[in-house]
Amino acid sequence: MAFWNRRPAAARGIERASRLRTVLAWGVALFVSFPFLYLATSGLKTEVEAPKMPPAFVPVPEFLNGIPFTYTPTLQNYRLILAGDFMPYFVNSAMATLVSTLIVLLLAIPAAYALTLPQTTSKRNVLFFLISTRFLPVVGVIIPIFLATRFVGLLDNVLALIILYTAMNLPIAVWMMRSFFQDLPADVLDAGRMDGAGTFHELTLIALPMVKNGVLATAFLAIIFAWNEFLLALTLTTTRAATVPLYMISFMSAQGLWYAKMSAAGTLVALPVVILGWFGQKWLVRGLSMGAVK
């Protein structure tokens, strides 16, 4: 029996998988990860080395050169990218993502809270209306949005993305925050009411501090969706306000197929929210299921 199997059987919770299943799970995980792990790997290679086959996975120090499946990692691609025009795109993405997320929280938190109060009427209608807008295909509205943005002169302006990302993430944020508010012990909120807290104080002094994790989770999800958004950015921005996915597109068409640099750029573009998602893993399900599944 392996050393990690020696935990007491009484340690309850989910039970232990068989050895076979462990090997299988690891196999599947590595298989599925190949595209992005290899992309990240290629970003650390030289332009000469990157397209070479057989694929080299294992980074080794220089003096071990020549062993099959190994390569010597270098940060040169990243240096080149960061020295190039990457930063403005990054700043645009960060702006659009963070500002929209902030607005989303400011709008969603009070709305979600009000949607848990007994005196609010038509809660069901509001919630279902909100979420159905999130399921509306973006292409269903892209034409007038494009025309309207052009009309008011917001084409290629981060503000346009901020507004759209706000509307895009609001419904999910409301549903998600509501599910967190609803999990609060009713007694504590009742105690607040007895102690003289009005709706405002009840929200700010009692409910909100108790759902800090929920706010964080909602922010995570909004950030992930906004950062990865492509279609709206593609149609509404060109140069000044373009975000990182567009950096990727323009990089590929301008520089041609520099395999290593492209891999490095791709890694750099995807990494921020991938890391965020890793940290926010346990909350993902709530956001993805609109709070219906915990």
């Binding site: 007694d187 009742d190 009411r193 007895m194 807290a197 501090p209």
Partner: peptide, 20 residues
């Protein structure tokens, strides 16, 4: 009249303290 204005105080089974 709203709960707060009634001048009553309540003690709950679950204590209902503000955890934060």
């Amino acid at each position: 009249v709203a709960a707060a204005q009634r001048g009553l105080a309540m003690v709950f089974q679950s204590y209902a303290l503000y955890p934060h």
